[in-house]
């Protein structure tokens, strides 16, 4: 018996004389959630609310008393939590998923520990110091655990460290150079994750790859738009060349591996860049009209292309 979906029921109802009561029965049997789904949901709902509220309560309690705690107590508390979380993650017999979540929590706690330290001793360190330390101490866990969310945290930390370093220490670096740097680094990560030997047990999740791709393309786009509106410099030329090369590679990869996302974000990036170019050329009314037409036309083309690709690859 075919699984009837909601869209099917709507479609059939549009072109037939099915009665309301028949439709109601169909919906209740095939579409609406049944008893077992409800039980699962209710249990999950209550336990999530329960744990969430209880933990928040404990957090708020510590927040209230924080100022009065002795500094050793503060540090000891965070360190204790960190050690407990990590030991549980490594040695307990919980499921792999929970262990990964615990380890990610530990990685976050590293940051909290450094923050508390900085607050107590007023080290007055540049913010980038803090992130650099946090990054360095997370790298081993990220590599070994090989858990997507932890990788995201790690890569986020790297990006933040670079950004803050450029802002606070190396302020002779131009904006474009920084964005080009971040583009290259994020792309390198993306390529690493795509090309590394496939582990039969652990598959790199699709959402993670897509997130990396989007972040890399965002940096490239921001960098080039920035370059368009600022004075010319060598980094801009270098960025354009690298972007062209990497975009080409990405399209090739997407084509060979039937990944539509590259055919969405790269054209979108190019559309934004061209729109920026057009604005740079002239600020006239005519130009805005041209940009409007261009945006409509190009987005339409991109969508049409995506649909065609989707169809071709679904049947291919």
């Amino acid at each position: 018996m075919a699984q009837i979906e909601r869209e099917d029921i709507h479609l059939i109802s549009r072109h037939s004389n099915l009665t309301a009561s028949t439709i109601k029965n169909l919906l209740q049997n095939q579409v609406y959630n049944d008893r077992s789904a409800w039980i699962k949901f209710l249990k999950l709902f209550f336990i999530s609310l329960g744990v969430g509220f209880t933990v928040s309560g404990i957090l708020f309690f510590f927040a209230y008393n924080w100022a009065d705690l002795h500094k050793f107590a503060k540090l000891g508390l965070v360190q204790g939590l960190l050690i407990a979380a990590t030991l549980t993650a490594v040695f307990s017999k919980l499921s792999q998923d929970i262990k990964h979540i615990l380890l990610t929590g530990s990685a976050i706690l590293i940051g909290v520990l450094f923050a508390v330290y900085g607050q107590i001793y007023q080290t007055g360190a540049n913010a980038y110091d803090f992130f650099l330390g946090w990054t360095v101490f997370t790298v081993i866990w990220a590599v070994i655990a090989n858990y997507a969310v932890l990788w995201v945290l790690f890569i986020l930390l790297i990006n933040t460290t670079i950004f803050l370093y450029a802002e606070q220490v190396a302020d002779h670096w131009s904006d474009i150079f920084v964005m080009a740097l971040q583009f290259v680094i994020n792309s390198l990560f993306l390529i690493y994750f795509l090309k590394r030997p496939k582990d039969p047990e652990v598959k790199t999740p699709e959402w993670f790859i897509n997130l990396m791709a989007i972040s890399a393309v965002s940096f490239a786009t921001l960098g080039i738009v920035n370059g368009i509106f600022n004075t010319y410099e060598v980094s801009f030329l270098a960025l354009i060349i690298i972007t062209l090369a990497l975009y080409g590679l990405a399209i090739k990869y997407g084509w060979e591996n039937h990944k539509t996302i590259y055919f969405a974000i790269i054209p979108l990036s190019i559309i934004i860049i061209i729109a920026a170019l057009l604005i740079k050329i002239s600020y006239d009314a005519i130009m805005f009209f041209v940009i409007t037409l261009f945006v409509i036309g190009s987005v339409t083309l991109v969508i049409k292309n995506l649909i065609d690709l989707q169809k071709k690859w679904k049947n291919g």
Binding site: G50, G57, F61
Partner: peptide, 28 residues
């Protein structure tokens, strides 16, 4: 309200929800 009161409210609400979870579990 003060942080302390909020923390107590949150904590006890959490306990109540965990109780509901256990109740649902037991009932089934």
């Amino acid at each position: 309200l003060s942080l302390l009161t909020k923390s107590l409210i949150l904590f006890f609400s959490g306990i109540v929800f965990i109780a509901f979870y256990l109740f649902t579990n037991y009932m089934l």
